[in-house]
Design a protein around this nucleic acid. Structure first.
Lengths: 336, 336
DNA sequence: TTGTATGCGTTATCAG
DNA sequence: CTGATAACGCATACAA
């Protein structure tokens, strides 16, 4: 195995010109059946595969597609990615996965690297709702926003009903008789987080139950800090009788905090299902989204967009679903 | 924003030749300070960045590095990936993440796509210990094996002490008085799984405790089937008094199975820590590996290898650590 | 239906 | 220290 075979090698072996090989590969023009057979045999024999760099340089774009997610270690993102990958694999597309690490400073180079590599399209969960550099990309490369609204952009998008799901969860806790309900979220600046908070607020408002400032914690960044925030609220004045957390990571922290030395179990609901939720005691009632389905939907949007670059942008909103397991149905417990 | 700036544009603006620009960018040859200043200004003004495709075509390799993991939805793999990414980001390398989906049929095209893209190096967790196509790669591109031994390959590798960890866990259960210990694993064919099984067997043999065939389940593929297998063993004859699972996914299933309608809690230990393990009741005793550290170690090996392609291959083995939380210290419970 | 010639943007050779 | 020019492998006008 010396040098990888090139188009020229195949052409020589098959006794035709490079152009003919190119035709067979790309299936654009018509080729005589006999010629095609010869060419295919030569390709097979040499194990030829087109050099992506050369092709990319020539045509100005790569056939790979890029994905920019915030954090691959987040189970939600990881499952989303698996859904995308599954579809892209089926479609024969090479998927380049990159992460933006929750910050524009990291996201921007990631996106630009992909853009620079002239990927055919990108799937992205933008950190911030407004970015000039993203906007510049829009006319040049198909973008699909995942889990973020294309606020000032005209791109395809896949969202879930964050507000509705959070409202349903809050109503669920209210129906169980709770009034001091805490809300824990890992970054209120995120679109999903703020919509979930909005759902929480609208349910509380509709029930005419006041939201207590000290029971809203928007400053948690990881499992440990969510646990700390939860413990602080429980140990402080006017502790909550129920807690709702707005994403899986916060939920794990919240639960860890709740499980430590409480006189009685505090009701709780998690936005986002997670592995192990049904094995905890009590099993955790959750607002379930289907990240795999989101990934598939996003991939489909991009694949169709690559087929037809024109046409109006399309927006998919997937529903959420409450899974009642026990933790959300507990009555308020009097800690005094 | 029309066309991205090219070397030629920069050269014209700076009033020098293309080659000089190239020199400045790559810092290889020496350039007069005054010239360099002019060039840098021009690069800045035009927002020029070298076209990776053109560079790759010319020099024959891409400066990106590739990662092939089995399943991005597996938390262990996801965390490993995060560790790698962190280091690669620091080193200014573009990381292309791909998955092999636990099967050579998927892994092979993934690896070959990366190879075809002439990545500078690859980090890989090969599915099968022997693959001719991987072997062919070795002389051409630096490979780092992660979590798999480079059996017939001369490549760098990062492993954890799977056998030692499993042995320690088994000894832990034996010390608590268990003799009917079950072993649940999600694919015994995997290197890590078989080494963990080996550790289990050697501890049992050393204690002269027989391994019961019906208490070894090597056929589980996901959380649901692990739960099913666990329930079957508990419901069958000679049920286990303790269960050990060989990876996080199996553990979640095992725990789900154990938590359903048992007269008393069955002792269990999980190889691999997982989010929520300490919030379960009882909290789960685990054999902890540090996937982030593994990722960092692997990335470092590759980065150093890229600096110095020659030199003997290096092998890093990271220790495991038992985290005692409760589930592994339970005594045998008599179910009769 | 097939072939020839040119250029994509970069780096390397070699000369100045 | 700097520049002209060829070449990487492929696709595409254009020609036959």
């Amino acid at each position: 195995m010396s040098r990888p075979a090139t188009l020229r090698d195949v052409a020589e072996l098959a006794g035709v010109s490079m152009k003919t090989i190119s035709r067979v590969i790309n299936g654009s023009d018509s080729v005589a059946p006999a010629t095609e057979l010869k060419v295919r045999a030569a390709i097979e024999e040499l194990g030829f595969r087109p050099n992506p760099a050369a092709r990319s340089l020539r045509v100005g774009h790569d056939d790979a597609v890029g994905l920019v997610i915030e954090n691959i270690a987040d189970p939600f993102m990881a499952t989303l990615t698996a859904g995308i990958e599954q579809r892209m694999r089926q479609a024969g597309k090479f998927l380049i996965i990159t992460t933006g690490g929750y910050s524009p400073e990291n996201e921007r180079p990631a996106v630009q690297s992909l853009a620079h590599r002239r990927v055919a399209g990108m799937l992205i969960t933008p950190t911030s709702p407004s970015h000039a550099y993203l906007e510049r990309l829009v006319p040049h490369i198909p973008l699909v926003f995942i889990d973020r609204p294309p606020v000032q952009f005209d791109t395809d998008s896949v969202l879930v009903d964050n507000e509705g799901g959070a409202r349903a969860a809050t109503e669920h806790l209210l129906a169980a008789g709770h009034r001091r309900i805490a809300f824990v979220v890992n970054r209120i600046g995120l679109f999903t987080s703020s919509l979930r908070y909005q759902g929480f607020r609208s349910a509380m408002a509709a029930a005419e139950v006041p939201i207590l400032d000290h029971l809203v914690r928007t400053d948690v960044t990881d499992v440990a800090s969510a646990a700390r925030a939860t413990r602080q609220m429980l140990a402080g004045p006017e502790p909550p009788t129920a807690v709702m957390s707005a994403n899986a990571l916060s939920s794990l922290g919240m639960i860890r905090g709740l499980h430590q030395d409480q006189p009685c179990v505090i009701a709780h609901v998690s936005f986002d299902d997670f592995d192990g939720a049904e094995s905890l005691s009590p099993p955790v009632t959750v607002v379930h989204q289907d990240p795999t389905a989101m990934g598939r939907a996003a991939a489909d949007l991009l694949l169709q967009r690559l087929e037809d670059p024109t046409g109006p942008s399309r927006h998919v909103t997937l529903p959420t679903r409450m899974i009642v397991r026990g933790s959300g149905e507990l009555p308020p417990c009097d800690r005094s």
